[in-house]
Amino acid sequence: MTIEAPETKIVDSYRIACDGGEGALGHPRVWLQIPQEHGWVECPYCDCKYIHSDHAKA
């Protein structure tokens, strides 16, 4: 049995909102701050990884 990897999204802002993206089946909206030193953050609800576009090439 394999576990599907969480979704990864490239974003242009260091402050983003995540609500699970599935309407009523998602999760409460949370605001996440991407630290500039490593350029990514994971949502504590759905484990979606947000990578800032300045760090996506690395």
Rank of each mutant, 00 (worst) to 15 (best):
Pro28Cys: 07
Asp12Tyr: 02
Val41Met: 05
Cys43Asp: 10
Ala24Gly: 11
Thr8Ile: 14
Cys43Pro: 05
Gly23Asp: 09
Gly21Phe: 08
Arg15Met: 10
Leu25Asp: 14
Thr8Ala: 06
Ile3Ala: 10
Val41Cys: 06
Glu4Leu: 14
Ala5Met: 09
Gly39Pro: 02
Asp19Ala: 06
Val30Glu: 12
Ile16Lys: 02
Cys43Val: 06
Cys46Lys: 04
Asp47Leu: 14
Pro35Lys: 03
Asp19Val: 04
Leu32Asp: 02
Tyr45Leu: 09
Met1His: 06
Tyr50Ser: 03
Gly26Asp: 00
Val30Phe: 01
Ala24Trp: 08
Gly39Tyr: 01
Ala56Gln: 11
Tyr50Trp: 11
Cys48Arg: 15
Thr2Met: 07
Pro6Thr: 13
Asp19Asn: 14
Leu32Phe: 00
Arg29Pro: 09
Ile10His: 01
Asp12Asn: 13
Pro6Tyr: 09
Gly20Cys: 05
Gln33Val: 14
Asp12Pro: 01
Gly23Trp: 06
Lys49Gln: 14
Glu7Asp: 10
His38Pro: 00
Ala56Tyr: 13
His38Tyr: 11
Ile10Gly: 00
Glu42Trp: 01
Val11Thr: 05
Cys48Glu: 12
Ile34His: 01
Pro6Asp: 10
Ile51Pro: 08
Cys43Ile: 07
Asp47Thr: 12
Ala17Asp: 14
Glu37Thr: 10
Ser13Gln: 15
His52Arg: 10
Pro35Glu: 03
Ala24Lys: 11
Tyr50Leu: 11
Val41Trp: 02
Trp40Leu: 07
Ile51His: 05
Lys57Cys: 05
Met1Ala: 12
Pro28Val: 10
Glu7Gln: 13
Val11His: 01
Glu7Gly: 03
Ala58Phe: 04
Ala56Glu: 12
Asp12Arg: 07
Thr2Gln: 08
Pro35Ser: 03
Lys49Arg: 15
Gly23Ile: 07
Met1Pro: 04
Cys46Thr: 04
Arg15Lys: 14
Asp19Trp: 02
Ala17Glu: 15
Trp40Asp: 05
Ile51Tyr: 08
Arg15Gln: 13
Val11Trp: 05
Ala56Met: 10
Gly39Met: 03
Gly39Ile: 01
Lys49Met: 13
Pro44Gly: 12
Lys9Cys: 03
Glu7Ile: 12
Gly20Trp: 07
Tyr14Gln: 03
Ser53Lys: 12
Ala17His: 05
Gln36Val: 13
Ala58His: 04
Ile34Lys: 00
Ser13Met: 10
His38Asp: 08
Pro28Trp: 07
Ala24Phe: 09
Ile16Ser: 03
Leu32Tyr: 01
Trp31Val: 13
Cys48Gly: 02
Met1Leu: 12
Pro28Ile: 11
Ile10Thr: 08
Val11Ile: 07
Asp54Cys: 01
Glu4Cys: 13
Glu7Phe: 02
Trp31Gly: 02
Ala5Cys: 03
